[in-house]
Design a protein around this nucleic acid. Sequence first.
DNA 1: ATATGACTTTGACATTGATCAAGAAACAAC
DNA 2: GTTGTTTCTTGATCAATGTCAAAGTCATAT
Lengths: 229, 229
Amino acid sequence: MIQETRHPIREILARQPLFSNLNEDELHVIAIGTREYRIRRNEVVFQKGDQPEGMHIVIMGQVKLAIPSAQGAEKVVHLAGPGHTFGEAVVFLDKPYPVSAIATQDSLILLVLKSTLENALDDSPTLSRKMLASLSIRLHELIDDMESCTLRTSMQRVVCYLSQQVPADHAEAFTIQLANSKQTIASQLNLAPETFSRVLSQLSEAGLIQVSGRAINVTSRERLIQFQA
Amino acid sequence: MIQETRHPIREILARQPLFSNLNEDELHVIAIGTREYRIRRNEVVFQKGDQPEGMHIVIMGQVKLAIPSAQGAEKVVHLAGPGHTFGEAVVFLDKPYPVSAIATQDSLILLVLKSTLENALDDSPTLSRKMLASLSIRLHELIDDMESCTLRTSMQRVVCYLSQQVPADHAEAFTIQLANSKQTIASQLNLAPETFSRVLSQLSEAGLIQVSGRAINVTSRERLIQFQA
DNA sequence: ATATGACTTTGACATTGATCAAGAAACAAC
DNA sequence: GTTGTTTCTTGATCAATGTCAAAGTCATAT
């Protein structure tokens, strides 16, 4: 599953915002304590309960972080794309991973070993600061997710999800290209796939969106947000 | 609402695990940037959307962190008792509080101002490390909460909650004294108060617990955990 | 003591969203 | 292409949990 290669790890690291303020020496030390691995779609990076190895950085591809349940169901907690990190929280605790990580696409990932990261943090307040910010963001995202799951109806969750996928230009009408299967997105929204499908049809019938495979066209962001029932 | 007093803030800070490794000078600087305030039961410390002031440390009492919803409902995210901190995550982000904080008891709280904390973190890798650990723990707790809310039935959530309240001695039979109203606990478990009440009666009928006000006697931890339906 | 208000319990009912099952569509492999 | 596999949609049904309402309990303050 893990396959070493000889890419310029240091170059890649230097391009990550997290490490952009480090000097050559610091970067060199981190690069030495970093492994690169490739992983195929649907393969497991680690499982809930495994002992943490370090911080993972997605270079290419995508990794799904999910809580597995006994009955085979799972709740997707986060989808980490290029430039995103995962597994960093456990570096600071003596606990196993609380989630499983599975590649949703063939991916290229860096693993900064636990001890390497710890040393780097002790030497660089800037890195510590960025790490704190990164964890804080994750915390906020999780709270938003919690809010969504507990205080909203399925319709509200879908509307909220769609309206958050707005492109940079904030256009009133736009097309979303879903980056994952509808199953995965349903799980992220804490919905059964069937429910997700039905909610999308309802929005279609109301003329607010057009669905064609993974492409969803939003006619009016404004009207979409207003929509109830 | 906020009322200054002249307690030995520095002494109190020194007793917090978070600051225990700091030297006299560092502690002094932090003490200067720390405010003490008292707040009554049911009073609001801050609301979701407010601009963050710094990190709060509960010295006495208890503060409830909850996501408010438009319809007056709320989802309790965390209950912070003596020695616990809250509001620290926002120090590292330029975002408003994602939750509201309300005292559930008359409380005494310290507020380490944002800039003070930031400076202290830049000067002390140890403090940074502890802060990272603290945020990581919060993240784990939230993930556990997420797991509970999304993958378990109401019965499973209550059983899990009760069995986690085990006293230190790990006795098979024990009595829990609920530290909050059943409403609050129900919200934390993401249940309607009525549902919580019904689940407790069910467990009572099954002979697994005896409920008497806020005191809950667990007859057998083992059998409680096994219980289904 | 008694009264007032908050919290809790219980019952009846409504509703959301899950489950099961079957068919359709998309995709991949050969 | 054709076949097999996975994903998605749609319908019918059901169970879990929320909502509403009323009564009961508890605590507090006067």
